[in-house]
């Protein structure tokens, strides 16, 4: 059980900012909403032409999302989807994908 203490602490940190007690798997659950297009755990099908997100550094993903939101990065659909998530949710999503292989 000791092994899990640092992980639990990391989870609390990741969800600090949420107004109420968040589900410990919130980042995982939110990231799963992206998987339809970007692949399970961010591993897109090779050759599908859609970007994989697994293992991408968190800051890089967040910058890309911010650029979609502002319109700096042109998109076919992501500029519309990114606006459906809060900054705290996007942070959890980017954190989750950064930790995937």
């Amino acid at each position: 059980m000791k092994m899990f203490v640092p992980l639990a602490a990391a989870c609390l940190l990741a969800s600090a900012g949420a107004a109420h007690a968040a589900d410990p798997n919130l980042g995982r659950n939110l990231a799963a909403t992206c998987a339809n297009c970007h692949g399970t755990n961010g591993n897109a099908v090779k050759g599908s032409g859609i970007d994989g997100l697994a293992g991408i550094p968190k800051d890089k993903t967040l910058q890309k999302l911010a650029d979609f939101r502002s319109g700096d990065k042109p998109a076919s659909i992501m500029h519309q989807i990114v606006k459906g998530y809060t900054d705290a949710q996007l942070d959890l999503i980017a954190t989750y994908f950064a930790a995937q292989k």
Binding site: N36, G39, G49
Partner: peptide
Amino acid sequence: AGGVSAARNELEGKIALGWAQNIWAD
């Protein structure tokens, strides 16, 4: 949030088939 395409386009024709590959795998 959300919305529709600005106009019909071939890029999304490719993305639509990529969507299918990824969701079937998911």
